[in-house]
Design a protein around this nucleic acid. Structure first.
Lengths: 136, 136
DNA sequence: TCAAAGGGTGACATCAATGTGAAGGTCAAA
DNA sequence: TTTGACCTTCACATTGATGTCACCCTTTGA
């Protein structure tokens, strides 16, 4: 597929697809006329990339991580250097920390929203309802 | 405490502490000489901020979220607008997505590392061990 | 009293992820 | 054949989180 379709299917700006390619995160063949031509699986790959970016990983890391997550492993096994492994272990641990942080705060927000919705159901007809906006 | 100590205790560059203050994420009193003076709880606050930043949330959002997570709730309850609630709900959902993304990829990396360590224990004395670096 | 350490503000630099626009090629449909 | 949609590369702008430097003030200890 060409870049426009990929963009539509992944909801990523065309500009970004070219950028990801420049960063070595995705790959394209070229048609006779020079247009980029993507394989179908690129759609999933781009979605994954966007997810990882959104979650705070830089392209530099994503580039290292990706090949270990998508491709048939047997292909990549033999190429893995101790260095790579160390990087992956590091990143895995950092991800664990992030998950913990997110989970904690997610729960906190949830609790807060719960409490608020309680309040809303409990207090509404009460006294000082005179503060519509956020300015104290 | 003054900014230097806060910096040491949170491992955040002084520069960043001033930046967080500028963004309204933390607050300081001023000593007679103009030096910033932080309350003790700021240490935790800064740690939380750094965690959230690391996890991909922008200061803009953190600023909205923070007051709901730290302070005694009763103080903040009455000020909550439907707008705020909507923002929080949105952000909560986005965090859930992020957690899912991270969890999935974390597991994948883990599986991969498992598999690799297996290989390492199984294949080492095998054939084509001639590719030390990462260049195909 | 002078130096060093720590603070303050302000401004400019950087890096990564994006936006945006210019200038030009390809192709299909009117 | 011309128009419009889609593609190319190149380049400059922007935004957010940082780094860094310049210049000045305060406190403390030799």
């Amino acid at each position: 597929m060409r870049i426009g379709e990929l963009s539509k299917r992944t909801d990523a700006p065309v500009r970004m697809l070219r950028y990801y390619e420049e960063q070595g995160l995705i790959h394209s063949e070229r048609l006779a006329n020079g247009y980029r031509d993507y394989e179908d699986y690129t759609v999933d790959r781009v979605r994954q990339i966007r997810g990882l970016l959104d979650v705070g990983l830089p392209t530099r890391i994503i580039k290292q991580i990706l090949p270990c997550l998508n491709s048939p492993r047997t292909i990549h096994m033999p190429y893995v250097t101790p260095d790579m492994i160390a990087t992956l272990e590091d990143e895995r641990d950092r991800m664990a920390e992030k998950i913990e942080c997110l989970t904690k705060n997610h729960r906190a927000i949830n609790d807060y929203l719960d409490a608020v919705s309680h309040e809303v159901r409990t207090v509404p007809a009460a006294g000082d309802s005179a503060r519509p906006a956020g300015q104290p």
